[in-house]
Design a protein around this nucleic acid. Structure first.
Length: 335
DNA sequence: CGCGTTTGACCGGCGC
DNA sequence: GCGCCGGTCAAACGCG
């Protein structure tokens, strides 16, 4: 089983949509070469993947109908398929982690370029005017409602810090009645101060990244003066570590090797018909879900997880045949 | 008891 | 030089 095998299958499951999203929605600079190679390979091999998938569906259907000639061989075949799936699962998870990492790298690079081009303007701008603009003009959503992200140099920083420190703004639409100045972005923050500023009646909260002691990233959170339902977060600096939710997923990639041979059947709460979810995505999905509940993961990861889940469950033949195969196996074992 | 939050005091930059 | 203001510190406090 060579690596291209993993790659083509992974595309069919989720990566197509992801690359699509990156290119169109976020428009990052050209990705790294190995990245391009991966996607090119994946695209070239797309047709054989679907054929293979159909074969698997047919095979599973045969197993369920009792048409397979040799039960022992079936079992071995299924186990082999599941092992293969678990291996793919691991590969996919690694690729996902790499994708996220590369994306953040590219985004950082883009920030660098943008900040360099706007440096002269930033120097000439007045400190307090710019600060006021930060909190009153920009609407950036991370919850998907009003999404447009931007980042540039922090005009109010002192000149010596100005050289290296980058600031990015994120606006989050929240309940206006919610008094807490917390923006769930997947990182761990420790609040170290709060101030009422002159240009805004709502207080401004100051946070430091507490996930890694060496990480000096800070963020300021304040409600927009124009719209109290919008929280404006200004991030200063760059994290020198991955987000806790990313770390969690990376951890899951090693664990799923051991548990990848099982199949989970889960009922979707949103659809009327039950859906079958392969363990191929289950570990990531479960972890992502728990991440959203406990430590909200970055929107990109949530999107990826949703894409992976939907692409798997979208194929009715595959899920139906698999469900039938599993039920057949259960009946066989009880007999 | 440990950890995170709150909050008043303090510091430094900037404008007048 | 003085006052204003944003940012930070650190002791007090609260919670699990």
């Amino acid at each position: 089983m060579d690596s291209s095998y993993f790659l083509d299958k992974s595309l069919d499951l989720n990566l197509n949509s992801f690359s699509h999203m990156i290119n169109e929605d976020h428009a990052p600079p050209p990705p790294k070469r190995e990245f391009v190679g991966d996607f090119a390979l994946v695209n070239d091999e797309k047709a054989p993947v679907k054929e293979e998938k159909r074969e698997l569906v047919r095979y599973l259907a045969q197993v369920n109908d009792g048409k397979a000639q040799e039960p022992v061989k079936e079992e071995a075949g299924l186990a082999g398929e599941l092992d293969r799936m678990s291996s793919e699962n691991k590969k996919l998870t690694e690729m996902l982690a790499q994708l996220c990492e590369n994306y953040s790298t590219l985004q950082t690079h883009l920030m660098d370029l943008a900040s360099k081009s706007s440096k002269k303007e930033a120097i000439n701008s007045r400190k307090r005017k710019a600060e006021s603009d930060y909190y009153s003009q920009n609407l950036i959503g991370i919850d998907g409602n009003t999404e447009c992200s931007s980042s540039d140099e922090e005009p109010c920083k002192r000149p010596k810090e100005n050289i290296k420190t980058k600031a990015s703004r994120v606006c989050v639409r929240t309940d206006a009645s919610d008094k807490s100045l917390t923006v769930k972005d997947g990182y761990q923050w420790r609040k170290y101060g709060q101030k009422v500023t002159r240009d805004n009646p709502s207080p401004r909260a100051y946070f430091k990244c507490s996930f890694a002691p060496s990480c000096l990233v800070k963020k300021k959170v304040q409600r927009s003066a124009d719209d109290p339902s919008i929280l404006v977060a200004i991030y200063e600096g760059e994290h020198n570590h991955m987000s806790p939710s990313q770390a969690e997923i990376s951890l899951g990639s090693s664990q799923c090797v051991n548990h990848g041979s099982s199949i989970h059947i889960s009922s979707s709460m949103r659809s009327s018909a039950p859906t079958v979810t392969l363990d191929l995505i289950q570990p990531v999905l479960c972890r992502a879900k728990s991440s959203i509940q406990e430590v909200e993961s970055p929107p990109l990861q949530q999107f990826l997880v949703q894409q992976m889940a939907s692409s798997l469950t979208r194929d009715p033949n595959f899920t139906a045949a698999l469900a039938a195969a599993i039920s057949g196996r259960i009946i066989d074992s009880t007999n």
